[in-house]
Design a protein around this nucleic acid. Sequence first.
RNA 1: GACCCCGUCGUCCAGCCUGGUCUAGGACACAGGCCUUUCAAGCCUGGAACACGGGUUCGAAUCCCGUCGGGGUCGCCA
Length: 488
Amino acid sequence: MNNVKDPVVVRFAPSPTGMLHVGNARTALFNWLFAKSTGGRFILRIEDTDCDRSTSEYTKMILDNIRWLGLSWDEGPGKGGDNGPYLQSERLVSYREKAEILIKEKKAYRCYCTQEELEIRKQEAVSQGKQPIYDGKCRNLTAEDIQKHDEKGSGYTVRFIVEPQELIVEDLIRGQVRFDLSLYGDFIIMKSNGYPSFHFAVALDDALMGVTHVIRGEDHLPNTPRHMLLFRSFGVITPQFGHLSMILGPDGQRLSKRHGVTSVDEYRQKGYPPQALVNYLALLGWSPGDGQELFSVEELINKFSLKGISKSASIFDPQKLDWVSSNYIHKEDPSDIAIHSIPFLQDAGIDYVDEDYVVKAMAVLKLSLITYSDVVQKGSFFWNKEYEFNDEAIEVLERCEVGKFIEVLLVNLKDWVEGSMPGEAVRNASLASGIKGKEIYHGIRAAITGMVSGPDLAGIVNTLGPERVQKRLKCVLQKFWMADKNES
RNA sequence: GACCCCGUCGUCCAGCCUGGUCUAGGACACAGGCCUUUCAAGCCUGGAACACGGGUUCGAAUCCCGUCGGGGUCGCCA
């Protein structure tokens, strides 16, 4: 096994057959944290051996999402390194050569069985109550048999020989796991299209790239014996394995589209700070043991340890993500929030006046934000001259007493030209109209924001300034109270 | 079906390895309250779990066995 002093080399190896999923993202994160916390290297490798489903668009997006999360790689696409190339489709020669060597060494053999034959024999096995594994038909083909097949031009796969035996996986997270290899059968390492199978490509690449720790999803645990066999046949040290439990949807089922947001990119588009997603994902299946839940990336690196990883599956909780995210934004400087939010304002086609104004608004808005995109809705009264009134606000404003109060307030506010709204004017208006407490603040808020809840009212008034506030009050008076009065 | 993994509040975790300090702790969510002459934020309080059954032991959430439940894998997908 590996010497403790050997530097850690880990990798994250997504296949570009879809978007980067939160489950994969957590796997990437744990690998990255493990590398960072041990001073090791983090390699990124793209497993694009599924010609039908892999696309370069997905590769691009996955890379982009990993970058967005802040998980920089030491070797990989766009970065280079001593163990490249980092796209499996560019490493075909090594797989083919190695497969030939394994055949020569009698550790693998050509298999001419067609998929149809395989399917039929599998059905037979199942109907007889046997394991549906490859029966080894082509294992002992003679040279003549092979020649005959080749003359016919039959395609073939290459299968790796699995001898029945017990194999023990020493899992970093799960401990000893025993497998009975008589249940496995000879598996394919080269497909008939000349591409390596997943098992072969992973094992060879991990061997060639000097990977010391393979941290991946639990769905790969049953594959691990195959990979270990392959490492042994290469004559290299087998890396250590650690299998992470799955992330499940709210219904306890495997994460899928119907659970709503599952891809990293969607969270990005929704305006979650990447650090918040990283923080939440770290919490899902890992704990520092001391109860801390909010971390900077540096703290995460310092505290991370394989020991803190839990064995049981965990359910993704969007509400807790929101909590982490809001905590993150609460601590951020208004100017930084502005930088991250402005793209959302622009996308919404909002004329936000100028950056200084946005920064000022963020200072009062930030406590209401869960994501950066929230600024559009939750701060709409900051950006739009023609802000909308929601039902609750209309209900408040349609009361005649509120109109009376606002009318008096406007008169009292005549000399107000700068700073915050004079408390004296409010008090006098309250006295004169007989309206007080809850009503007056509700009224002012509803009038100038169109909502009955939101950020600190004084802050809003301050940011909007005397001119805008008075104008809005006048408009509201016109719109709600005057109309009412005329009718009655 | 076979094999493998897992099983503490609704959810995420701590405790389990090295049995007693656990009348099981924290967080999210939920409920109530405080603060603010509004709402939000913040603060406080509350309800809420050791899957079940055996065994070992003076003593088990912690160790052992079984049952049940959930998940995973059985592809020329990865």
